[in-house]
Design a protein around this nucleic acid. Structure first.
Length: 288
DNA sequence: CTTGGGTCCTGTGCGC
DNA sequence: TGCGCACAGGACCCAA
């Protein structure tokens, strides 16, 4: 599900539900997600007041009143759902553990002091959570190594050009490297390269100068549009799972193998290739 | 240091 | 209709 825009949509959905409220209870329905949850995870969250709901790359960062940060990565299939007092669930039938309905993949159940129930559901369990003490946030290994936010001023053509120099891998693979720029995933890498007219197979180091300017600009634009689409789905559905934001987007090349290139007067069939184990979609005529 | 490949996990959709 | 297989939006780990 989630790349930067979807995670930002989740953040925006969570913020009004959590910020300023105290956590009454946390129930873990298993001791681990992708990784074991840190010792005392539930106990340390219990009784804390949420002060901020932020985001870095694809991480949701929930700031607590003791200075700690509750970090959430949604992996491939993680999502949050909400229910006012007593009916949070992802819909499937399940066992009762004080909650009205608990689905098979509802792994973390949070009750806020006003009774709001927040469920973290993740069938594939590639997601993970951590609880980071105030003095460890700056050095957390998963955060400290991340590249710049693509929507920040620190990310531009000059940065991209310099960061790609010497890289022999493909530009597509390079964009997925979170150390280089943080938050782009498989879909938006394909879409940004299409809009920039750059072949995903091009060697990363050859994306420099004006070509890098163009790519940086298209990355910002495609992410900004996706966040806007996610925001409208939030307004319509009051959910934070981001799924509608993804679902409603009409990708121009992603998932469109064999369909005609959407550029005017092109019509070249979109190709699908595999790079670094991931599907890449592109137009061989428009992308060089 | 960079790079490519394997791996974790479950659900879905397709072709036969 | 049932079955098996390919594939799915991420990122870690390891070997070369």
């Amino acid at each position: 599900m989630p790349e930067l825009p979807e995670v930002e949509t989740v953040r925006r959905g969570l913020e009004p539900m959590l910020a300023g409220r105290r956590i009454r209870d946390v129930e873990l329905r298993r001791p681990d997600l992708r990784f074991p949850l840190p010792p005392g995870f539930a106990e340390r969250l219990r009784g804390r007041r949420v002060e901020t709901v932020g985001r870095r790359a694809k991480y949701v960062l929930i700031g607590l009143d003791d200075g700690a940060t509750w970090m959430v990565h949604l992996g491939m299939s993680g999502r949050f759902t909400f229910a006012p007092g007593g009916h949070a669930s992802s819909g499937q039938a399940g066992h009762n553990s004080g909650w009205a309905l608990v689905g098979r993949h509802d792994h973390v159940l949070v009750t806020m002091e006003d009774g709001l129930r927040v469920t973290y559901n993740d069938p594939r369990r590639f997601g993970f959570m951590d609880l980071i003490a105030a003095d460890a946030l700056g050095t957390h290994p998963r955060l400290a190594e991340l590249g710049p936010e693509p929507l920040s001023d620190a990310f531009d053509g000059a940065y991209l050009s310099a960061a790609l120099s010497g890289r022999r891998t493909s530009i597509k693979a390079a964009l997925l490297d979170q150390h280089l720029v943080a938050g782009i995933g498989n879909i938006y890498a394909c879409e940004a390269l299409f809009e920039a007219g750059i072949s995903p197979r091009r060697q990363a180091a050859t994306v420099a100068g004006r070509r890098a300017d163009r790519l940086a600009g298209r990355i910002k634009d495609v992410l900004t549009r996706a966040i806007a689409a996610g925001g409208s789905s939030l307004r319509d559905y009051r959910q934070a799972d981001g799924e509608l934001g993804y679902f409603q987007r009409a990708w121009r090349v992603y998932g469109r193998e064999g369909e005609a290139c959407p550029e005017p007067d092109c019509g070249t069939p979109i190709q699908r290739i595999v790079q670094a184990g991931r599907s890449t979609f592109y137009c061989a005529r428009h992308q060089r």
